[in-house]
């Protein structure tokens, strides 16, 4: 199971520029993977393709045994809702909603917001945001905003957590607390975590390290390559 990409390639624009080139990689359930490489190497692009946000122009991606490039829109969105969590460099919190409402947004999609409210409060408490649950995003610090975004990604207990430079906009202290949360997702909650970062220290915290250059994997310390 897990995530399996076969000969994935992607080209952009015209004349076409190849950004990913024949990437075949398997990420097993419960792995903590870091994607690193220089700016422009294609890290974000690979993450989006693996997480169904973007469609590859070549090859296929399977998640939990399902080819997500062939799934219909409704199933795909349900799949994202139930099984995937996303964290980006920018928090993408909805300004009109309070902290707790933001966290519960994914639960509202499947009408489980009442049921999951206690879990949302737990997450907020864990991330030090309990007192600020009815504040609006603009009333939070950058670190708090990012932790709130992570809480939102975790509310549905997803199997997969995708993070694109989650510490990119944070100072060291906040960045480290975010890293600690991601590590706990992997160790305590047995989530599959795939994290893009260009910070070598943070990349090193992941047991599996994949390095990209010019749209190709140039190094992968997979424990048992398939």
């Amino acid at each position: 199971m897990g995530i399996l990409s076969k000969h994935v390639g992607i080209k952009f624009g015209s004349p076409a520029v190849r950004v990913l080139n024949d990437i075949s990689v398997e990420i097993k359930d419960g792995e903590f993977v870091s994607l690193s490489g220089r700016s422009g190497a294609g890290k974000s692009t690979l993450l989006y393709v693996l997480s169904s946000l973007d469609n590859p122009t070549e090859g296929s991606v399977e998640i939990s045994g399902q080819d997500i490039t062939k799934m219909n829109s409704i199933d795909l969105h349900r799949f994202r809702n139930e099984q995937m969590g996303f964290v980006f460099q920018f928090h993408y919190l909805i300004a009109e909603l309070t902290s707790i409402q933001n966290v519960l947004m994914p639960a509202m999609k499947c009408k489980r917001d009442v049921e999951l409210r206690p879990r949302a409060m737990e997450l907020l408490e864990k991330f030090g945001l309990k007192e600020k649950h009815d504040r609006y995003p603009r009333q939070l610090s950058g670190g708090e905003q990012q932790r709130l975004a992570i809480a939102r990604a975790l509310i549905m207990k997803p199997k997969y957590l995708f993070a694109d430079e989650p510490t990119g906009a944070l100072d060291t202290v906040n960045a480290e607390s975010v890293m600690k949360i991601l590590q706990e997702c992997s160790t305590q909650d047995k989530m599959t975590v795939i994290m893009v970062t260009h910070d070598p220290d943070f990349a090193a915290m992941a047991p599996r390290k994949i390095v990209l250059a010019d749209g190709k994997i140039i190094s992968d310390n997979a424990t048992n390559p398939s």
């Binding site: 946000l53 799949f79 994202r80 809702n81 995937m84 996303f86 909805i94």
Partner: peptide, 16 residues
């Protein structure tokens, strides 16, 4: 636009 993007990532489909 950013809200639309995150909603889609959170599993809200086109119809939503």
């Amino acid at each position: 636009r950013q809200d639309i993007a995150i909603l889609r990532a959170l599993g809200y489909d086109t119809f939503d």
